[in-house]
């Protein structure tokens, strides 16, 4: 009684004060709980994804011995690496051009490269498919890679562009002043400072490609079924813990890559951008 008399409304104040923290916590739970459930049931002994019957690795064994899944994974990896390489190369070149050079139509090019970011992916995919059949291309690796490049290029460009625009232009003046020609300035001064961003762009592009479903649906052909497409078709036949196990493996792979990137390149990026 006395405590309440001293501080009226203490409860409400406490709720208001704590609200942002609680909301954040609940949001994270909401996002991460499904992952926890998925990973847990990957170890289920039974065939159910809701009733726990015991611990087992059998679904993991099933995943790694499933030829279809392994094939799909190989396709996904090839497409991810190839499309990431292409879109990082184009994105980095464009980013350097947009931020470090001035030429007519520079702003238009900048906007055009970011366009796929806001266009609905499905529209992009349909348009691409129509263009490809018009051009008489057979669906396969090439079309798949082109599609994925289209999806990841805005991200690759944005990342390298952000890094390029934070570069000190006076460093290029300094390089020229000390006798470096344009090519030497680019390879010895500009590019080395962009390496962390280029690496990040590559990893992000590869991840986007590896996860992609919509674009793959339209651009993959016979024999080039990607992993997400394979998982989607497996779901149609019923949900088994095999999918859980595959999901758990993919989460593990993603987290490993993320930690690798963060551990190796994040400190480097922070250092480079420090003035």
């Amino acid at each position: 009684m006395t405590a309440r008399a001293k501080a009226p409304g203490w409860f409400l104040r406490r709720v208001v004060h704590g609200a942002p923290g609680w909301i954040t916590l609940l949001t994270y739970l909401f996002m991460l709980l499904p992952f926890a459930v998925l990973i847990t049931f990957a170890f289920n002994a039974g065939k159910s994804t809701v009733v726990w019957t015991g611990f087992s690795f059998r679904w993991f064994e099933k995943v790694v011995s499933n030829g279809n899944i392994l094939d799909a994974m190989q396709v996904s990896l090839i497409v991810a690496v190839a499309s990431a390489a292409v879109s990082t190369a184009i994105g980095a070149t464009a980013a350097v051009a947009i931020t470090r050079r001035s030429f007519p139509g520079r702003d238009v090019l900048g906007a055009a490269l970011a366009a796929p970011l806001v266009l609905p992916e499905i529209v992009l995919a349909v348009a691409l498919l129509m263009f490809m059949s018009f051009a008489g291309m057979t669906l396969g690796y090439t079309t798949l890679i082109i599609g994925h490049v289209l999806v990841s290029i805005p991200f690759a460009t944005l990342i390298v562009r952000a890094a390029a625009s934070s570069l000190d232009p006076r460093l290029e003046d300094a390089a020229a002043d000390l006798g470096a020609n344009e090519w030497q300035t680019f390879t010895m001064v500009t590019l080395p400072q962009l390496i962390p961003a280029i690496f990040t762009a590559f990893i992000l592009s590869a991840t986007l490609s590896f996860d992609n479903l919509v674009m793959s649906t339209f651009t993959s052909g016979v024999g080039t079924t990607t992993l997400p497409l394979r998982i989607y078709s497996m779901l149609k036949l019923g949900i088994t813990p095999e999918i859980n196990a595959l999901g758990a493996l993919m989460v593990l792979a993603n987290v490993t890559i993320l930690l690798l990137v963060m551990g190796r390149y994040l400190p480097l990026m922070l250092k480079t951008n420090r003035r």
Partner: peptide, 20 residues
């Protein structure tokens, strides 16, 4: 003549050392 072909060098106000 462009900067890189001139027999002069500059010391900049912000030093402009290559950070990498």
């Amino acid at each position: 003549v462009p900067a890189h072909l001139r027999p002069v060098h500059t010391v900049f106000q912000n030093y402009a050392l290559f950070p990498h």
